[in-house]
């Protein structure tokens, strides 16, 4: 264990900083993007292009009084948002941003991220339960059952990738996809595997990532037209802020994972372009995915709870299992 104090402090600071900055400016990007899609400007008053909006929002949230509803379970009520935010930050420690930028290269990086993510689920449950609000309880139950249902196809697709690369180390998974766009698992023409269904796996993973992060069209947990605001109905001030930041941090993690597993991580799409540093490519890719997520959110209506479970159990799980078997067979043959 080569943990040095400096290493850890720097890694955690950078992770928190990255997560917080991303969370704040993704809100801005989301609002601007939504505005553009709806032919309006979005926040554009504070600062150039409205760039001061997120810090001002943050100040506003922090200045607000933290209200704990009567009858709420105080300890859990306060613990829940922290529990939602913390695993998201910890996950950043194991995420490689390029072949050199990584806080702690864990041998089982993929698994670690999923393990930390599972803490998020229980935080939603605690949030819903402790705030003593029927809407909150309903929404947290929804959110958790949704998270459990989508964990299965997601893990199965991850296993498919792990099967191909033979490792759970995120660095090595990216290394295996090196050498241009045709090597990425998004659509592997080469790299010894001609599995045409990997595109489908990519889609499945992407859909599951949307569902796991409770994003539209799977945002049943905070379906504002039914459950008011979902599990954070009773949260104000920084409690709400932490949930919000946690949500966006989860989006970043989800898109990082998608990039690492299917889009070649920091690999340049064409070998000619590899003079550009890997981090740049990585950031370009994750922000493209985040943009797509935002785009999707402002386009589609919300699914129903049974539609969501049907999608998972009837479509995603069979297809991902089929692809797993196919890949295993291909690996044996090739």
């Amino acid at each position: 264990m080569e943990l040095t104090l400096l290493n850890v402090v720097i890694a955690v600071t950078i992770a928190i900083g990255f997560a917080a900055l991303n969370a704040a400016y993704l809100v801005w990007a989301e609002r601007r993007g939504a505005g553009r899609i709806q032919n309006r400007p979005g926040p554009n008053i504070n600062g150039p292009l409205g760039l001061l909006q997120p810090p001002l929002d943050g100040i506003k949230l922090m200045a607000k009084q933290l209200i704990i509803p009567g009858g709420a379970d105080k300890a859990l009520f306060i613990a829940a948002p922290v529990l939602a935010m913390a695993p998201a930050i910890v996950s950043f420690v194991t995420l490689p941003f390029s072949d050199t930028i990584i806080a702690h290269n864990l041998n089982i990086g993929v698994l670690a991220i999923f393990a930390f993510a599972s803490l998020g689920g229980i935080s939603l449950l605690f949030a819903g339960w402790s705030s003593r609000n029927k809407y909150a309880v309903m929404s947290s139950v929804r959110a958790v059952s949704q998270a459990i249902a989508y964990e299965i196809p997601m893990l199965v697709t991850v296993i498919t990738v792990v099967l191909i690369t033979g490792t759970m180390n995120l660095m090595e998974i990216v290394e295996a996809q090196k050498g241009g766009i045709w090597n990425w698992y998004f659509f592997p023409f080469t790299s010894g595997l001609y599995n045409p269904l990997m595109t489908m796996s990519f889609l499945i993973f992407f859909i599951c990532a949307l569902a796991e992060t409770n994003r539209a069209p799977f945002d049943l947990g905070e379906a504002e037209s039914e459950l008011v605001a979902g599990f954070h109905t009773e949260y104000g001030s920084m409690g709400f802020g932490l949930f919000f930041m946690g949500e966006y941090a989860n989006i970043v993690i989800g898109s990082c994972l998608t990039t690492l597993l299917f889009l070649g991580g920091w690999d340049a799409p064409l070998p000619v372009l590899s003079f550009i540093p890997g981090v740049v490519w990585f950031l370009i890719k994750i922000y493209l995915i985040i943009a797509t997520i935002i785009w999707i959110r402002w386009t589609f209506p919300r699914t129903t709870i049974y539609g969501l479970l049907n999608l998972s159990w009837k479509i995603l799980i069979p297809l991902s299992l089929f692809n797993l078997l196919l890949t295993a067979g291909l690996l044996k043959v090739v």
């Binding site: 089982i108 698994l111 993510a117 599972s118 689920g121 229980i122």
Partner: peptide, 14 residues
């Protein structure tokens, strides 16, 4: 570490 992560995944998550 594998068992540790499985512990989180199964006990906490499930």
């Amino acid at each position: 570490p594998f068992i540790a992560m499985m512990q989180m995944l199964i006990y906490v998550g499930a």
